[in-house]
Simulated scan of single mutants.
Amino acid sequence: MSRYYKVLQTQRFDDYRYYHQSRINQTLHLISAVIFLVCYALLFKDPAMAGLVGWLAMLTRQTGHFFFEPNGYDHVNDVTNDYKEAVKVGYNQTRKIVLLTVWGLVPVALFAFPTLFGLFEAPASRMEFVRHVGVLWLAVGIGGGLFRVVQLFATQDVATGLIWAFKVLTDPLHNIALYWKSPLALLRGELIDPTIKNAAHWGAAADDEEAAHLT
């Protein structure tokens, strides 16, 4: 198995077992994944709308993380929450809060400075204002991803950054494949995924101690 594929699988497996134990969170990720695919379809046709749709998808999945995922000590994986946050390659809770704060400040900044110092023409309607927000939200999303990739280049290595970027971009498809049964499990009253500890379907990723911290 290619080392890069193994690292990708390990990142996905750790993301799944550490941060997607809740069936509600999984279901919200499934919904978010479908919305993200709509965002991808709009990206080159209508970037402003893509930005609005993309952040709707982002808020849907972050709702699952912040409100439904178990916090505190992780008894399933026998690790502390601090450990999970420290080893996460992507956006941990602290980084997400910073990113979401920037996202929330965008409409405030545009309300205070409608042209954003000449970047836009003054909006002639509410819809134009909303579309300007969408453009900036798209920039925040892309910029946040690129910023983290560059950070990973500097703090780890180029391969880790590129693999994480590929993982993020393909997460919608992977989430659909992984969580399409979660709503049915939720309807059965299953709040926590009981298969978390079963790593057989992740191949060698679960057994690769060298890559185990690449989440």
Rank of each mutant, 00 (worst) to 15 (best):
L146A: 14
S32Q: 05
T160E: 08
G143C: 12
R131M: 15
T60M: 11
T170G: 03
G143F: 12
R148Y: 04
L99E: 03
F147T: 13
N81S: 06
N71P: 01
L56I: 14
P123V: 15
V158Y: 11
T160N: 04
Q156D: 13
W103E: 08
L56R: 00
V130H: 06
I31W: 06
K84M: 09
F67G: 00
W55H: 10
R126A: 14
Y91A: 03
L42F: 04
E128V: 15
V106L: 09
L56A: 13
F113T: 10
V79W: 03
A154V: 15
M58I: 13
G72A: 09
I142S: 06
V150D: 08
L100C: 05
F153D: 02
R126T: 15
N92K: 07
F120E: 02
V135K: 09
T115N: 05
L52V: 12
G54N: 08
S125D: 12
P114Y: 06
V89S: 09
K88R: 09
T155C: 07
H132C: 09
W103G: 00
A109G: 04
P47D: 07
P70G: 02
T115R: 07
H75S: 14
V76W: 00
V158A: 11
H75R: 13
V34P: 00
L43Q: 03
G51I: 05
T63K: 00
V87A: 01
L136Q: 01
A33F: 04
F44Q: 08
I163H: 05
K45D: 11
A124H: 12
L152T: 08
I163Y: 02
A122V: 15
I35Q: 01
V98S: 08
F66K: 04
G161R: 04
N71S: 13
F129Q: 09
D82S: 12
N81C: 01
L169G: 10
F129T: 10
G134S: 13
C39W: 03
F111R: 11
F67P: 00
V87S: 01
V38W: 07
F66Q: 03
T170R: 06
F147S: 07
F36W: 09
R148S: 05
F66G: 00
K167M: 14
D157L: 08
F120G: 03
A33L: 05
L138N: 02
G64L: 05
G141C: 03
Y40S: 12
F36P: 00
G64S: 02
T101W: 03
G161L: 06
V108D: 02
M49T: 15
H75E: 15
K45H: 14
E69V: 02
K84Q: 11
K45G: 01
E69H: 01
I35H: 00
Q156L: 11
M49H: 10
V133C: 11
Y40Q: 12
Q93F: 14
L116T: 03
D157N: 15
G72K: 12
L146Y: 10
D78L: 07
A48L: 08
E128R: 13
A41E: 06
T101S: 14
V130F: 15
F166T: 14
R131L: 15
D46W: 12
Q93R: 15
L169K: 06
G143H: 10
E121C: 05
L136G: 00
F129L: 11
P47H: 07
L59I: 09
A122Q: 14
H65T: 04
F117K: 08
P70C: 05
V149S: 05
W55G: 00
G118W: 13
